[in-house]
Design a protein around this nucleic acid. Sequence first.
DNA 1: GCATGATCATGC
DNA 2: GCATGATCATGC
Length: 438
Amino acid sequence: MDDFDYDYASVDSIVDFSRELTGKSLSEAAWHPESIANVRNRGNLGSLVENFFFGINPGNSPLPDFPQANLELKVTGLLRRSNNQYRAKERLVLSMIHYSSIVGEEWESSALLRKCRLMLILFYLYETDVPVTQLRFVLPPMLLNLTEQDAEVIQRDWEFIRDKVRSGLAHELSEGDTFYLGACRKGAGGEGEKLQGQPFSETKAKSRAFSLKQPYLTQLVERHSEFEASLVIRAGQTIDEATRARFEPYLGMKTDEIAQNLGVSASGKGFWRSIANHILTDSGKEPIELKKAGIEMKTIRLKSTGMPREAMSFPNFSYTGILDEDWEDSSFFERIERKFLFVVFATGADQIERLSKVAYWNMPFDDRLEAKNVWEETRRRVAVDASNLPLSGENRVAHVRPKARNRDDTELTPQGTKLVRKCFWLNQKYIRDVISAL
DNA sequence: GCATGATCATGC
DNA sequence: GCATGATCATGC
């Protein structure tokens, strides 16, 4: 996409364009980085985004920021909870309340709706002591229509505020009056405060603005995060079909090309999984539908020989815990019983890697019996000598190998020795045979 | 070039 | 701080 290359009269075009910001900071996404280098580090990120990302300068207008599209732009901050969920940093201020004119308004034709009926909300992750131009936009853009989402409550809140001004009580407005839409203080307080006149009382009132309350915004963010991590499943479509439909356009494409098209920023060990997630959901998160169904998505990279680059790992087992377990309540059993979704990237004879295959798979009964043999053999040997466990030559399907943070990441064995933590792996050759038979 | 041991990156 | 889903490194 080029700089400012969007249709300023089209909501879709503006929203699509704004996706370029997702996962980036303004200084990374601005079309002319040199122009932003001189910007002071303080200031309003919202206006900086207008100027340096969208190339607009709407100023202080009663019309939306994109008047031809009837779309208002909002840029607002998020905080990260300890459980990694996002919450709104503060309320989202919409527009000033003009006491003299609101008393003559109706909701549908109100000044608030004229400006803010449809909003494009861009969320950045707030961090202390980081220049605003380096704060990262962390969620895909949200479109919010005030006359659709929770419309009845918001309309009632608005009417309550208007009616209070009609009763000459603008000076008694408070955020506690309403539910989702609040009348928040806005403008200088203390010494510099300029009180406003109101039409039906001599008493001056503090200046206030309409805002979406912080808890309401937080809840919108939570809904948005979940929505963005969902598969788009059309009516009558199964999860299986919806998955195929998402992958279909990318089959045969070069890995790098897919990553570039989808703006995958991950690197290192999670790169291929991140690509799969980005294909499945707009947010690039693993779809909740797969989690709910207990579907085990595995990315597999094949060398040009058809051999997987890696064996396939499963959760660690515990040297002492495994002695108390039965096969059928072991975590290895629980995992291989699941439905797998294999996402296969294969390197061709041309040495270029492409997305080559996507398929669901269940481990056949005979192979599960082999896995059971490995598990039981492991259990037997752990009791005698935990340092000698089944290797890949010993069984067609699975073996045991370290999986730990490093060599010091150990666990006590029944022999009282400390050994690096291990898990069950499906053999490379086994995976190769499974994939080639798909 | 595989088997095995060792370790990384990320999310919760 | 750890589990998870992987990849990296090395010796044979």
